[in-house]
Amino acid sequence: MWEALQYDFMRNALLAGLLVSISCGIIGSLVVVNRIVFISGGIAHAAFGGVGLGFFYGFSPFLGAAAFASGASLIMGAVSLKNKHRADTIIGVLWAIGMAVGIILIDLTPGYHVDLMSYLFGSILAVPSADLWLMLPLDGFIFLAVLFFYKEFVALSYDEEFAFVMGVPVKTLYLLLLGMTAFSIVMIIRVVGLILVIALLTIPPFIAEKYTRSLGHMMLLSSILSICFTFLGLWLSYVFDITSGATIILVAGVGFFFSQILNFIKGKVEIPFRKQWSDHENH
C-alpha cells in the first residue's frame, strides 16, 4: 500500500478525497436536514450538459459542469420557492434535459470519442494538481460562508417559517446554499462521478445525524466519515484493481447498513426496558 504514495496521482487522489470530504460533510449535512436531496440529484445530472458543452467547444468540461450546475441550482431554487407543489416535477425535467444535452453535444463533437465513464463514475486517480488548487478555495469559501451564517443556517434548517419571522433572509440563504451545493457537487463528480454524487453527499450526514447533538457536530462527523469512506475505498480499489468511485460508494453503503443495524439493535434494547417500567407503573 505505502509504495502507492510515491506516485503523484495517488497523493493527488488522497488530497482530492480529503478536500471533497470536507465540503461533502458541511454541505451534505445541510442538504439532508433541509430535504433538498432531490434538487441535489437534479443539479448533478443537469451538470452533464456542461460537460458536453465543454467538449463541444473545447474548454474544460469541469468548467462547463460548474456553469451548468450553478445555473441549474438557481433555476431549481427559484422554482421551488415559487411553486412548491410542482417543484419536484420541474426539477425532474431539468435533470433529464441536462443529461440529454450533454450526450448529444458529445455525439456532435467531431472525431474524438470521450471516456464518458470518468464523468459518470468519477476519476479520482486522474486529478491533476491544478484541480486541487481549484478545490482548496472552494472548500475555504464553503467553510467560511457556513461559519459566518451558522446560526442563521441552523434556524433556517430547523424551522424556516420561524426563521423568516425573526428577520432571517431565508430565501437568500436558501439560494446561497443551493449555489454552494452546486460547487460541491462538481467537486464530488471528480471523485465518484455524477451518478454516485447523491450517495457520498447524503450517506455520511445520515449516519452522523443519529450520533450528534448539533448541526456543527453533524458536519464534523460527516466530514470524518466521508474521509474514512473515501480513503478506505481508494485503498480497496488499488489493492483489487477495481473502479475507485464505485468502491468508495460501496464502502459508504456498507457503513450505512452497519449503522442501521446498530441503531436497530440499540432500539431493541431500549424498547423492552421502557416497557418494563410502564408495566411496573400499571401494577
Partner: peptide, 26 residues
C-alpha cells in the same frame, strides 16, 4: 423535523435572531 440535531437551549436562542446581528454568534 424531530431528528434534527439541536438542543433545547439552541432552539430557544433562535428567538434572539431578530435582535442579534447577522454573521455574529449570539
Amino acid at each position: 423535523n424531530n431528528t434534527f440535531p439541536v438542543s433545547v437551549m439552541d432552539v430557544v436562542l433562535m428567538g434572539r435572531l431578530a435582535i442579534s446581528r447577522m454573521g455574529k454568534s449570539f
